[in-house]
Simulated assay, not measured.
Amino acid sequence: MKTITTTEVQEKLAAGEELHLIDVREVEEVEAGKIPGITHIPLGLLEFRMHELDKNTPYIMVCRSGGRSGQATQFLEQQGYDVTNMNGGMMMWGGDVE
């Protein structure tokens, strides 16, 4: 499984890179604060909404601490998607939150 740190994601966003971030936390967690521009697909709905994703687009999966996003990363990898898990999740995130 590919991984990326929260610092690396913040640096890429600060450099103007277009990243495709997916937050797999629950609605209440996302309402408490999310990375600006992130797409929200709760982990429990991922298998039903993966048709919304493009297999040619790299995605970075995000959750609270990295566990659920790791599950999502493994699941999508098995389906042929290009995915990376953000280690540490929102608990380690030091960038902008909306």
Rank of each mutant, 00 (worst) to 15 (best):
K2Y: 10
T3D: 14
T3A: 11
T3P: 06
I4N: 00
T5K: 12
T5Y: 12
T6Q: 11
T6N: 03
T6C: 15
T6R: 06
T7Y: 12
T7V: 13
E8K: 12
V9K: 08
V9S: 08
Q10T: 11
E11L: 08
K12N: 13
L13K: 11
A15K: 14
A15E: 13
A15I: 01
G16F: 04
E17Q: 13
E17A: 07
E18H: 10
L19Q: 03
L19G: 05
L19H: 04
H20Q: 04
L21E: 03
L21I: 13
L21A: 01
I22L: 05
I22T: 02
D23I: 07
V24Y: 04
V24W: 04
V24K: 01
V24D: 01
V27D: 13
E28V: 08
E29H: 03
V30W: 08
E31Y: 08
A32H: 02
K34Q: 08
K34G: 06
I35M: 03
I35A: 03
P36S: 07
G37I: 02
I38L: 06
T39K: 15
G44E: 09
L46E: 09
R49P: 10
R49D: 14
M50L: 15
H51F: 15
H51K: 14
H51Q: 14
E52G: 09
E52K: 14
L53F: 12
D54K: 12
D54A: 08
D54H: 08
K55H: 03
K55Y: 05
N56C: 00
P58G: 04
P58S: 11
Y59C: 13
I60W: 11
M61D: 12
M61I: 11
V62Y: 10
S65A: 14
S65G: 13
S65K: 09
G66Y: 05
G66F: 05
G67R: 12
R68I: 02
R68G: 03
R68N: 04
S69V: 07
S69E: 05
S69L: 07
G70T: 02
A72H: 10
A72T: 06
T73Y: 10
T73Q: 09
T73R: 05
T73D: 09
Q74F: 09
F75E: 00
F75K: 02
E77Q: 10
E77M: 13
Q78C: 01
Q78I: 00
Q78M: 05
Q79P: 00
Q79S: 03
Y81W: 03
D82W: 03
D82A: 06
D82K: 12
T84K: 00
N85T: 00
N85Q: 02
N85K: 02
M86H: 07
N87E: 15
N87H: 02
N87W: 00
G88L: 02
G89I: 02
M90H: 01
M90R: 01
M91E: 07
M91R: 12
M92I: 00
M92K: 11
W93K: 01
W93E: 02
W93M: 01
W93N: 03
W93S: 04
G95Q: 07
D96A: 15
D96E: 15
V97T: 13
V97H: 07
